[in-house]
Design a protein around this nucleic acid. Structure first.
Lengths: 194, 194
DNA sequence: TTTATTTTGTACCAATTAGTAAAGTATTAT
DNA sequence: ATAATACTTTACTAATTGGTACAAAATAAA
């Protein structure tokens, strides 16, 4: 294992790239933007990410999954009331302290920002949104198993419902600054969880 | 009113621009893409649209409103059953014959694709989404007036609900190819219209 | 210390970008 | 006809794009 050591931390610069992509969008983020934020030179960058911007984005998506989805899934599978957790989660999206701010969903954004000839990236983004859907479905199923839900709707249909709500809110947030309206919107949607 | 006449039809080339923006997204649509599709030279383009790509997009949004929203609003204010119209409208989004295909909502896309320093465009896109919300609200109010709806939810809250459903579906469609799941999703959401 | 290996910095490049300049063309009004 | 106006064509530019080439540097193993 010889050779010159890296002078940067892989995950640290990935996190910086995530920030840039999330803030500016995939198409608008230039290589310069990314390199500046990451604080590494072109040589290092193209050495570490031979696939350039596309590979960087792919890895940044993995990072976002690892950083966000894993924690949510763990919380949902261990907490006492997964249904209330979901309610709180969606209500938190309507406030200033929203975990994603006004930047929307990393993967929903990708689906809409990535050009058609980068079909690979779109597929990956879709796959991760399906993972989120699955997480919701599991939580709902657990809620049913715990006797917290009486609804006759199947868990997976509710998972689809919730991921669609997630997708909607992340767009609607950008057109609707009135947080009370957003909260009311979420409350109305959460009536499916009975 | 002297001067050389235009060799093209203003609205015809706007329609072409709409096609390109819708297909490729605002950020990915280059001036060349647009000029080729519109079939005019750079000179003509920058003469007709002094503001360049940004002005073109602004006018293309107006065109989309005129071409789509006006018709929907008219239909909704004159048809016998506006509630059923809305149901059919949303269900139509889940099929192959969807009016927007997989290209999503022109304005929702804009909110996510336009870079932060084009704040003006984002505001306009948001404004038009609010117009759509208003159209839904009016339809719901009319449904109530006609005795077609018994729900206690206020019309404007339902308008917000429907525009959020619209926003969600247009993202979810891109991650979910299964049209039955989409249709089931819409059906579940339309239960608010009782 | 030498050598092999891995990483970095710098300089460069070809292509593409949005946009401009200006000369020329087609029309209407006088 | 001629002048004024409105539009088009072409050629150009300056900046930025993503990406490459390669020599230099930093380390581990021999």
């Amino acid at each position: 294992m010889a050779g010159r050591p890296k002078i940067y931390d892989e995950t640290a610069i990935l996190d910086k790239a995530v920030e840039v992509f999330w803030e500016k969008g995939y198409a608008n983020a230039t290589a310069d933007d990314l390199l500046n934020a990451m604080g590494i030179g072109k040589g290092s960058f193209y050495f570490a990410f031979k696939g350039g911007k596309e590979e960087l984005f792919r890895k940044s998506m993995e990072r976002v999954v690892e950083l966000n989805f894993k924690a949510i899934r763990d919380a949902l599978t261990t907490c006492a009331d997964p249904v209330q957790f979901i309610r709180d989660f969606f209500l938190s999206l309507t406030g200033n302290e929203s975990p994603v701010g006004n930047k929307g969903c990393y993967f929903g954004n990708a689906l809409i920002q990535v050009s058609a000839d980068d079909a690979g990236l779109k597929m990956i983004a879709a796959k991760y949104l399906h993972l989120l859907e699955e997480i919701f479905t599991e939580a709902v199923q657990r809620g049913k198993d715990l006797g917290l839900l009486q609804t006759q709707e199947p868990a997976d249909a509710l998972g689809t419902y919730l991921v669609n709500l997630w997708n909607g809110i992340n767009v609607t947030r950008r057109m609707e600054p009135d947080q009370r309206k957003l909260a009311e919107l979420v409350r109305m949607n959460l009536k499916v969880l009975i």
